[in-house]
């Protein structure tokens, strides 16, 4: 257990320092944009005319110094939220992002309570 806790602390520290260093990877962005004219394909996977154009625009936006997040916002602004594969954390998508963690915590609590009940009896 201790190892895991220790490990998790390292993880949290490192991941926060890591986030700052990251530079923009265009393939990553293509993968996170949905090709609107295809069935369930990303811009990266698709060779449609539309995907080609979007790739060009994304390249331009990167050149203009836009951040990854700004590019997603730009695309969502033009084509609607449907185009981004990673739903933004906002009021509407709050449940989507938070519920899994609530379940994770809740499940842990249930297990904990089952085990504790037993302990009290002794």
């Amino acid at each position: 257990m201790k190892i895991i806790i220790f490990y998790f602390i390292i993880f949290l520290n490192l991941s926060s320092s890591y986030a700052a260093k990251k530079n923009i990877d265009q393939n990553q962005i293509y993968k996170n944009l949905r090709c609107l004219v295809c069935q369930g394909q990303s811009i990266s996977d698709s060779n449609s005319d539309f995907a080609q154009t979007i790739k060009l625009v994304v390249k331009d936006l990167i050149k203009q110094g836009k951040s990854e997040k700004q590019i997603y916002t730009f695309m969502a602004d033009k084509y609607g939220d449907w185009i981004v594969y990673k739903p933004q954390l906002n009021k509407q998508n709050f449940i989507l992002w938070v519920l899994p963690y609530v379940i994770l915590l809740g499940g842990g609590l249930v297990i904990f309570s089952i085990i504790r009940k037993k302990r009290k009896k002794f």
Binding site: K31, N32, R34, S42, G80, D81, W82, I83, V84, Y85, K86, P87, Q92, N93, I95, L96, L99, P100
Partner: peptide, 24 residues
């Protein structure tokens, strides 16, 4: 399950279509 169903729910309840994909 939540990721798969969520777009159906937002569409039905708010008329807004979203995509939940690999990054999520």
């Amino acid at each position: 399950l939540i990721g798969t169903l969520y777009p159906i729910f937002t569409d039905a309840l708010t008329e807004n279509k979203i995509s939940v994909g690999p990054p999520f």
